[in-house]
Amino acid sequence: MLTYVARRCLFMVPTLLVISFLTFVIIELPPGDYVTSYVQSLEARGMEISRQQVELLRMRYGLDLPFHQRYVKWLSNLVQGDMGHSFTYGEPVRKLIAERLPMTMVISVSTIFFTWIVAIPISIYSAVKKYTLGDYVFTFAGFIGLSIPNFFLAIILMYIGYRYFGVSMGGLFSREYLLAPWSWGRFVDLLSHLWVPIVVIGTAGTAGMIRVLRATLLDELGRDYVRTARSKGIKEIQVLIRHPLRVAINPLISTIGWLLPTVISGEVITSQVLSLPTTGPLLLGALLNQDMYLAGSFVMLLSFLTVIGTLISDLALALVDPRIRYT
């Protein structure tokens, strides 16, 4: 097994190299660079900037170098752990991401728990009580959850919250706690705001998971081994959870590693709408401003986590399903 992990890690190197190249190319694709958009924003504010100054800026940011040199420089810094500087914020990329990471992770991890805790019982119910009223209600609700875009749901929730409860749903803290140091009151305030992004971000995932799990469970429920388990005289709920659910959950475990990048990235549009202090809006802003080091490092970080996550998924699947071997 160790050799398997080692070999997989070795394969990651060329994969990440290819990804880094593609990332760089794509970020470079739009015409112009950060200086162009910087000059544009200055001009929009009525300021004049001379051609010389522009060239000076380019030189300072290393944007005058040819493409391949910039790529190599960026990559070698990245390997050493230096993600570069953000043009927009004038701060190291690493610091910017680290600032926003804890809250992003709190939201993402809570969302994952929310998804599983809600989806598993509902899918068991729906599968066992197939074609009953309850099943139809959940299936219908699932379709709605799946088809409403997250940001739209966020807007609806914000409207309802403001219109009927008089509270502002955006952000993670009330105004009085926004900059306050951590305290019990601030924690409670966080919890009272946290459920909105969790529900908004989690709804589509929950609905999707219910659909997948219900379908796999329906397949498994008809299998002979369920009858065998039932013939032992154990409780019906034990029959369901220990046997068909245990088998049906395997494909979901195989996707667990893919959650890793989403934990870091956060939901971009939803976060923007709800004005959450997560990494999502940071990435969006970086792409809009052609803040290439911020964007590039961010994308590379996500790719790295995706590759790691896939490995974790494979290992987890082999762990829970004895029929899968490492080769």
Partner: peptide, 11 residues
């Protein structure tokens, strides 16, 4: 049961 192949839980 008839089918020993499928009557045991695989995991």
């Amino acid at each position: 049961f008839q089918e020993p192949m499928t009557s045991l839980t695989p995991v």
